[in-house]
Design a protein around this nucleic acid. Sequence first.
DNA 1: CGAATGACCAAGC
DNA 2: GGCTTGGCCATTC
Length: 104
Amino acid sequence: MKNYFFLQVYSLVKKIPRWRVATYSQIATLLGQPRSAQAVGWALHACPDNIPWQRVINKAGMISIINERAPKTLQVALLKTDGIKVIKNEGDFFVDLKIYRWLK
DNA sequence: CGAATGACCAAGC
DNA sequence: GGCTTGGCCATTC
């Protein structure tokens, strides 16, 4: 396959500890390409179900997912299972990055 | 190969 | 201070 970037993203996301979360730009940066946040988001959109995609959120700590197969409510449930507190605000969900941000 | 897409980001209005 | 615009980049059409 030639989609190395996707594979790298998946590989890295799998390494995120259960009690932590990462941002799209963080993933991109760790892969050596700080400008590829958009591509990271797209990689996760492929959502191979064997990766903890719920631990990856945008830079504001907000869950802006738009996916029938993986609704926000599901992501929130999974995050709670991981021991992460999710804050609900006007229909949107947030994670406190100051507390849960993955420090690699 | 050129154009379009998208779960992003930063700057502008 | 919330919404729009343009720029990023890898993948798909």
